[in-house]
Design a protein around this nucleic acid. Structure first.
Length: 594
RNA sequence: GGCUCCUUAGCUCAACUGAAUAGAGCAUCUGACUACGGAUCAGAAGGUUGCAGGUUUGAAUCCUGCAGGAGUCACCA
């Protein structure tokens, strides 16, 4: 049994027997004893002193004595003010290592494929331009949270909702017709999504010129923006698209096809994927029936001009439009529809949307309206709201050319990784292909770790010039630690035997590593509850750091005592497995050598 | 302007639901290569946790006010 559960149960009994305090074991919080004090786990007794009617020192001493006499695994305790520090017997740690070292899935729960799934939507790109740094955070988070929830036992389904229709795509299409000269990804060698993005920019350029011209001839800015011939034509094209005009549809399919090929390539390089892909062109009409239902139920109302609204003023919000006066739907209408579709498709236990915090308001409203429409599962909708990625000079702005392109960034990372590897690496015997693969996983390890180690809810700063490092608290640091361990374990592989570790005594560095390993399952559980890959990333770093410190001044293969040596090799193996599993949750591969 | 979120070392980030002297990395300085892999390790220096109050035995964490920043408040998505 887990020592922490044993402790909290024993403490719970102690509180009851000594002071008649009813405190369930779950409610008792143990924290890791701070380094400067001796002990492994600490109970803060202040919350109980009032009821116990004794001094903090007395309460701590009495609980300590009770627990030690009732739990063999507690080898001692000490009291400092109101802090009761428990010492756990080495025998417990040794048994833990003996049992877990060879468990390649340590810390990971198995999933029941029959369980109601947790559906995670992420990525959800527009098809008019390539992916950039903001999308990278979204994709890495979406993938990692999916891995994390799966590691905590959830049956995860990853979905993508591609925004493949709308005025923005028509802009690219129109510009391509006008100025494209029949260019294709094949004819130009330009990746499909970038080619389409190029024409989106091209549209904007010519459109701006038209607006400027109109304004110079005396038209108001707002009117000019509506009247510019290119905009009028794009609107017409959208209408033709909605009417199913074969020519427009054919062009749309062709250009979207280029974009999908480009996206697939970027997804592949990022190492992310989906169980199901939805297309907005199939779902954008959904939701209208829901609006009708809402009208019938009386939770929505129609204004004189025919538009339909939901009144949320009672919830402290405004009125929200759900159907335009021409009867067409808006974003919210579609999202109501797709939520229902997804709920029906999966019978989901939870519907998670990985979407930036700029849409906090949207999701608040979405949940409210779903509730008003009578869907009991409205509270299963969870908006995983993440912070913006900022650049040193503020937000990314395509007009100012400050957008960090996803493909460019990966390219640069791979180049840097290659340079670093040639400088430091021990991979001369690798083939050219293997080296390329290594550079790739190091590059992505650095990038992914850099982004995922930050609390998802917080905005983060990304400095392209100097942000990504390969030393210190980085992905490659952890990858390096893994490679180094694997090197040791490979060398130790001959003549390994299962020996009885029970006579060993642990040194401080060993104990520190074992305690961190011991905390892995609880860490994954807590991280999953918080939807925070950052907690996993920080864990992996703590473990690697503690291991490196242990490694530095403790002989392993050089150790002469066979049992101690075998124990240390087992500990190495254990750490390697834990690093591999935690990095895998982050979507990061760990190499055998680097 | 209304609402929401944020502000921790020079910089980038930690600190689980309030707990002991607020921790890492980068940058700076000093040590460790006769190596189980130095992409490492050991150490130094660096803080009035934006400011002012309050609650509490105890506050970076909870409450109020203020300052600064971000987001949002579309018949865009």
């Amino acid at each position: 049994m887990n020592i922490i559960n044993s402790l909290t149960q024993s403490i719970s009994r102690a509180l009851k027997e000594l002071y008649a305090i009813e405190q369930a074991p779950d409610g008792i919080v143990l924290q890791d004893t701070r380094r400067e004090f001796s002990g492994d786990y600490t109970l803060v007794v202040f919350p109980y002193v009032k009821q116990a009617r004794k001094s903090p020192e007395a309460v701590a001493a009495e609980i300590g004595a009770y627990v030690q006499s009732n739990l063999d695994l507690v080898s001692g305790y000490n009291v400092i003010k109101g802090f009761l520090n428990f010492e756990v017997a080495d025998s417990y740690w040794l048994q833990f290592v003996a049992g877990g070292a060879a468990d390649t899935s340590f810390g990971l729960k198995s999933t029941d494929p029959e369980a109601a799934p947790v559906v995670v939507e992420y990525s959800s790109p527009n098809t008019n331009k390539p992916l950039h740094l903001g999308h990278i955070r979204n994709n890495l988070l979406g993938w990692s949270v999916s891995q994390l929830l799966a590691a905590a036992g959830a049956n995860v389904k990853k979905v993508n909702l591609v925004n493949d229709r709308g005025i923005h795509i028509c802009k690219s299409m129109l510009a391509w017709l006008r100025y494209g000269n029949g260019e294709t990804p094949e004819s130009t060698g330009i990746k499909g999504d970038h080619l389409v993005g190029k024409y989106y920019v091209e549209f904007d350029k010519h459109y701006k010129a038209e607006v400027k011209q109109l304004m110079e001839s005396g038209v108001e800015e707002e009117q000019a923006k509506k009247d510019a011939p290119l905009m009028v034509e794009a609107q017409q094209m959208l209408k033709h698209w909605e009417d199913g005009d074969p020519e427009v549809r054919a062009l749309w399919e062709r250009m979207n096809g280029w974009v999908y090929a480009g996206f697939d390539e970027t997804y592949r390089r990022l190492g992310v994927g989906f169980d199901k892909v939805y297309y907005e062109s199939n779902t954008y009409l959904l939701g209208k029936e829901l609006v009708q239902k809402g009208l019938d139920m009386g939770v929505l109302f129609r204004k004189d001009d025919g538009s339909v609204w939901c009144d949320l003023t009672a919830d402290g919000l405004d009125q929200k439009l759900l159907l335009r006066r021409d009867g067409t739907s808006v974003y919210m209408t579609q999202d109501l529809g797709t939520a229902l579709l997804r709920h029906n498709d999966f019978g989901a236990e939870r519907l998670i949307y990985v979407v930036g915090n700029e849409q906090d308001y949207h999701f608040k409203v979405l949940k409210l309206i779903l509730g008003k429409l009578g869907f009991s599962w409205a509270d299963k909708v969870y908006h995983l709201s993440y912070g913006m990625v900022e650049l040193p000079n503020g937000k990314m702005k395509s007009r100012e050319g400050t957008v960090v392109d996803a493909d460019d960034l990966i390219d640069e990372m791979e180049q840097t990784a290659a340079e670093m590897s040639r400088e430091h690496g021990k991979n001369d015997e690798l083939s050219a292909d293997e080296q390329q693969h290594l550079y790739h996983i190091l590059a992505l390890g650095a990038l992914k770790y850099f982004i995922l180690k930050v609390d998802p809810t917080k905005n983060m700063l990304f400095n392209p010039a100097e942000s990504i490092d390969f030393n210190g608290n980085t992905g490659p640091f952890i990858q390096y630690t893994h490679a180094r361990i694997r090197s040791i374990v490979r060398k130790a592989e001959e003549g390994r035997a299962t020996l009885d570790f029970s006579k060993i005594s642990l040194n401080d560095k060993e104990r520190a590593v074992v305690k961190i390993l011991h905390a892995l399952p609880a860490t994954i559980q807590a991280a999953a509850e918080a939807y925070s890959p950052a907690m996993v990333a920080n864990y992996a770093y703590d473990l690697a750091k503690a291991y490196n410190s242990f490694y530095q001044d403790t002989p392993i293969l050089r150790e002469e005592d066979a049992v101690t040596k075998e124990f240390r090799v087992a500990l190495c193996q254990f750490v390697a497995n834990a690093l591999k599993n935690t990095m895998n949750i982050l979507g990061i591969e760990v190499p055998e050598r680097m």
